[in-house]
Every structure is written in C-alpha cells, then in structure tokens.
C-alpha cells in the first residue's frame, strides 16, 4: 500500500534520509521508530508529498506521489508532529474546511464532519474556537482532520506527544479502532504503544533503515528480547556508509 524506493533527502550536505526502502502492506499498522533527528518526520513528509525527495520515490496504492500528487494526496490523511490548526476557526468550521478541500460535497460533508467529531470525542468542543481548547483536544482535532473522508492511508507523526496519561490511552484506542481497513504509519517514542497497536516496525537511525519487518520476526531475530532492548541495540549499530550514490 505504501512503498518507498531508495528514498533520499539531502539538506545541503546534511543527509536527512538515505536510501530508504520500505513496503507497508494494506491494513498493516507500522510503528516508525528512531531517535530524534533520525529522519522520521522527513520520511513522512516525503510520503505525504509535503517535501520532494532529493531522489528516490514514494508510492501510495501504486500511485507515484511525486508524479501524481493530487491523486495520491486524496488517499492520505496526515497528522503532522505539530497539529496544523487555525486557532481563529471553530473546531467544526475547521473540519468543514478540510472536508471541503478533500472534495466531500454537500450533505455528505456535514455527515463526515459529524462522524469525525464523534469518533474522536470532540462533541463538547465542536462549537469552540480552536485557540480556546486544551492540548489534548487540539491533538484530537488534528486526528479528526486526518481521518475525515476515510482515507486509505493514515500517517501519524507522534500523535500522543504531550498528552496526559488518560488522553494517551484514549488516543491509542482511537488509533486501534481506526485500524483494520486502513494502512497506518505511526511514528512514536513510546514503545508500549508500538507493542499494543502495531503489527510491524521500522527502526531508522541517521536517515537509514536499520530494522524493518513484523514485530514477531524481529523479536525472534533478536532472541526474544523486549522491544526496548531491540530498539537500543538497533540504534547503536554503526550505520553503514555506502558512498556510491551514483550507482543507483
């Protein structure tokens, strides 16, 4: 469903992401792990079409994101690290705006907005200005925005960051309930989250993919270690420095 091929991003001389090859099958929830600055956000931005890769490509359901951005963007719901909210708008009119740009028409739009509001538990604040609601609610508005229009693919960049424990559990349950039909990439630092929601994981460090596959198999490979131990030993591996970029 989601495929990256030699995905690479340079910012000047800085290598943010280097030759990333992943394939996430339909219906899978992929936990995307790695230390801060490893290139997770950059990767997600390239998958959603926000950033153009230096080279390599990303595909969503077989559609090349760089070549046919409009078609690909229709399939994706994206929650960036900082929820992209307009503080001057009411929650409901914000969601209305997103739904309209996603091409949902007329009566259907109202219905979809209501659905998104109720599945993220926003009924209480729907009529309030976004600037006046709590951080937890803002995060939910961000998720509601991503799931409006039932996109086949969800890209969630640290959806539970900065929330209180109760909110974390609620959001986690929400993500779990969204799974099934949808393919999800979930970046996070909370490893329990990964074990409780995700089917497979990708660990990246310094822009390169270090481990990728189903959780069970990776656990086997590391001799049934806990995810925490796997993570630590994965990111302390020396990143292979292949300096023959021209060979591609």
């Amino acid at each position: 469903m989601i495929k990256t091929e030699n995905l690479t991003k340079f910012y000047g001389n800085i290598r943010a992401v280097y030759r990333l090859n992943m394939e996430v099958p339909e219906g899978d929830i992929l936990g995307f792990l790695g230390p801060n600055g490893a290139g997770k956000t950059t990767t997600m931005r390239m998958v959603t079409g926000y950033t153009t890769p230096s080279f390599g490509k990303t595909e969503i359901a077989g559609i090349n994101v760089q070549k046919e951005p409009l078609k690909a963007k229709k399939l994706v719901g994206y929650l960036p690290e900082i929820p992209p909210l307009y503080p001057e708008l009411k929650v409901s009119s914000y969601l209305e705006f997103v739904a309209e740009v996603k091409g949902i028409k007329g009566k259907e739009r109202k219905k979809k907005v209501e659905e998104a509001i109720s599945s993220t538990g926003l009924e209480k604040v729907a009529g309030r200005l976004i600037r006046n609601i709590s951080k937890g609610y803002r995060q939910r508005v961000g998720i509601a925005q991503a799931i409006i229009g039932d996109p086949k693919v969800l890209i969630l960049d640290e959806p539970t960051i900065g929330l209180d424990p109760k909110e974390i559990v609620e959001i986690r349950q929400l993500i779990k309930s969204l799974a099934g039909k949808r393919t999800v990439i979930l970046s996070t630092h909370i490893l329990q989250e990964v074990t409780s929601i995700c089917g497979s994981i990708a660990i990246i460090n310094e822009g390169s993919l270090i481990e990728f596959g189903e959780i069970r198999e990776i656990e086997k490979k590391y001799g049934s270690a806990s995810l925490e131990e796997i993570y630590i030993s994965a990111i302390s591996k020396e990143v292979k420095n292949e300096e023959h970029m021209g060979n591609n």
Partner: peptide, 14 residues
Amino acid sequence: RQNTDELLFTLPTT
C-alpha cells in the same frame, strides 16, 4: 509559522 502549511500542502489541492 503555525505549521498549517503542512496541512495545506498535503491536502488534495494545487
């Protein structure tokens, strides 16, 4: 500044 461009440029619009 508000990072809402990340929404705007990932919505299906040109």
